[in-house]
Design a protein around this nucleic acid. Sequence first.
DNA 1: AGAATCAAACAGACTGGACTGTTCGTAACT
DNA 2: AGTTACGAACAGTCCAGTCTGTTTGATTCT
Lengths: 223, 223
Amino acid sequence: MDSIAEAVPVVGKQALRSAQMRRRLCEAAIDVLCEVGYEALSTPMIAARAGVSRGAQTHHFATKADMIVGAFEHLLQGWEAARSAAFGQDLRNVPFETYLRFVWREIFSRPSYVAAVELMLAARTDGELGERLRQLLASPSGERDQRWRQLLRFPDTEKEEQFQYMTLCLLRGMAVHSSFNRSDTRNEAVLEAWIELAKTLIAKEGSAGAPARRKPPGPAERP
Amino acid sequence: MDSIAEAVPVVGKQALRSAQMRRRLCEAAIDVLCEVGYEALSTPMIAARAGVSRGAQTHHFATKADMIVGAFEHLLQGWEAARSAAFGQDLRNVPFETYLRFVWREIFSRPSYVAAVELMLAARTDGELGERLRQLLASPSGERDQRWRQLLRFPDTEKEEQFQYMTLCLLRGMAVHSSFNRSDTRNEAVLEAWIELAKTLIAKEGSAGAPARRKPPGPAERP
DNA sequence: AGAATCAAACAGACTGGACTGTTCGTAACT
DNA sequence: AGTTACGAACAGTCCAGTCTGTTTGATTCT
């Protein structure tokens, strides 16, 4: 609940209030984004949703872009928190299929992921927003690459990178499709098929596929 | 140029003008959508882009939703026209890889496709728009299914349908990713990898893989 | 065939509303 | 005391939809 507030070094009473307020606003922004979409989203709606005055909202996020960027960052942090809670930092003993099912269930299949895609598409035609979102994604992307390296361990890193990219695009495409067609029943089956495919690929590619000693994700474990 | 005007049975001079005007407006709408995005799009912008008065615009498309739906339909018609010009109606002798490269190059990798995705995502939070877009897509989707059946000819239609869905999601995901990251160099390689995968799948699944007697797409051939 | 009649295609202005960013004022904290 | 957090109102902008007026094309009647 307050894992993010802890992540920021809170010193005094005022700083705590500030952090909490920012959190409330970001969560409200994500809620509004999921419910009405980026086009209809407005800063007054976010303030109302958070139950605060517009003055407070503009104080913490001066412009609409600031608000959006903050919400996006909050989303990323939430994903990272969920991932970290389920698997910790070392993925070397996590089976690929376990991880894939996890990210689909906990990230890609959620409405908030579609909201994030909506932001990314909006960023396409808004240079400044795009730059800021890309910057936010830069560091997580690098870490994601490393995690997948731990997961897959293809001998050919180029093939591995390609496989990772394909997986990302597949999941993203499925998320968009399900969003437009009110969730598609084929998703689970496709996921399993992709896992099957990955297994044959991994087998063909060489050494990977170490025995899985870690327990499956289960309920989150706090560090 | 006037293939669409011909498609509609034009009787008199007035009907022709009307059809041309609608076409101009739809194309302008797509242009604006590609350039400024759905969030910043407005009906005055479309009218200005088309070089017509706002009165003319509202006359042909009474509401903003009407305008958007019209533009979306125009997009679909354009895709169908391109596909039909390249391959005609019978895909039984078209190699799968040829078709896949074609749809990527001529449809998914274009900015207008991302614009269409933007509309689909916007439709997520706009019930009426969603219903209308889904209705527009219903018939093309059915035809697309049939075309892919001609292309792949898996003995197991369920597996075939799954493969088709995966391909669609992959291409869509790639389109979104490339849009956010100013085009990704990995796309071509991933496409080839997917073709390779499809070949092994087709081989494994059974009878498919008939020799390709048709010539590759090349420049469009009118019927 | 030609005038009269009607509808459709356009043009331009207006209105009510909503949103973004800003400013000024007040209370709480350090 | 001075900074930070918040509240409330304001100014400027823009948009969607409507309404009135004008022109052009189709239709009917003689």
